[in-house]
Design a protein around this nucleic acid. Structure first.
Lengths: 198, 198
DNA sequence: CAGGCATGAGCAAAAATTTGCCTAAAAGTG
DNA sequence: CACTTTTAGGCAAATTTTTGCTCATGCCTG
């Protein structure tokens, strides 16, 4: 079936080993992602600023700048960007450092393709664009506490709702929230349920 | 240096090896922390509910329930409580799991006392790291609604508090929030006021 | 040291939120 | 269309949060 044609998101792949890079890129493309590759952190950072990217998958060991430093810099540019590490050199310290930088996961090479896909699925499953926009609302430093918290709640619910295509039951499950409460909140926050036309 | 003079906070130590437990407890007490010990996860969980605790330091390998499961349960009770692992069995997977549960760090046994102190300092002391920690918490897509909202509230307050160098009145003003309410929230969220040494 | 702020916290009333129960409307299916 | 599954929302009780009062403590200034 040609269902892999749907747009899954755009992944930035960073690895200094061009063979690995190519193989992974090919694999991800076949799986339906659009992929941008980079074999040096520097170019990757540039691409990060220029392209719309949903997630980054990076190696740890690289010449010029290691994966951690790259991640730190990437964070500055895109604070919410999901980072995924994969490396054969996962010492406890490295892993801790990566996770502290906000990595979603740290996969050990060799990475099972299915695992990588699964992770990316988790990451890109919900959307990135509306997310950032809504984020602006609750990130407005001038607004009073209460407003910001409400904005955040709204953002959370909307995002989740969207992710599950308006399926309330799924939202309940994911957010671990009482059905009645969700109703109330949506009422109060002015969130309306809407399903995508398929 | 006479740094151990100020009240540092209350640490819950969990380790099934009573010798290690005792030694660490003694060490931390000498260093100025108040320490609650536990040699089983179950009692630790109970203590978590009963006592006011600023951070938990736990082993990974334990009979009855491993450190990860303990951490998961602790999270349910205290979603924002700083967790610190230390263990000799730090596989990449374990570390990732621990960090995904929101651990602040994962130290490898044998742990250098100075390192442990340093970490606790980060956690209980100046809210520098905790900020990042909190931020990640509310960005953690897997966490339940309530946790995420709390994490966000904590982040807001901490950030604002830091911005105004611990000046509560200024925070009140900026966040447009009742003084009593702020007190309550700080209490509930485990935020301590901290002014920079000038 | 006295006096004045700034802050933390106990207490209880007031207000808001959460949640179970239940009904009706809406949506999805065959 | 008849039937099943999902949702929204009224109502009231249960629970949690907010907030005013008040007091005690700590800190700063003079």
């Amino acid at each position: 079936m040609t269902e892999s044609t749907s747009i899954q998101g755009c992944i930035l792949l960073l690895d200094d080993d061009v063979d690995v890079l190519g193989a992974n890129a090919r694999f991800l493309r076949i799986s339906g992602y659009s992929v941008i590759v980079s074999n040096t952190p520097t170019t990757a950072l540039k691409q990060l600023e220029e392209e719309v990217i949903d997630a980054v998958v990076t190696d740890l060991r690289m010449p010029e700048m290691d994966g951690l430093e790259f991640a730190a810099r990437a964070r500055e540019v895109k604070p919410l960007l999901p980072l995924l590490f994969f490396s054969a050199y996962g010492s406890v310290q490295n892993v801790v450092a990566a996770m502290q930088l906000g990595a979603v996961d740290f996969l050990e090479k060799p990475v099972a393709p299915s695992l990588l896909l699964e992770r990316l699925e988790d990451i890109c499953g919900d959307h990135n664009e509306p997310r950032l926009q809504t984020r602006m609302a609750f990130d407005d430093a001038a607004a009073p506490f209460r407003h910001r918290v409400l904005a955040y709640e709204k953002y959370l619910i909307q995002t989740c709702m969207q992710k599950h295509n308006g399926h309330v039951a799924a939202v309940l499950e994911e957010l671990k929230i009482n059905r009645r409460t969700l109703n109330e909140k949506m009422q109060r926050l002015g969130i309306r349920r809407k399903r995508d036309a398929d």
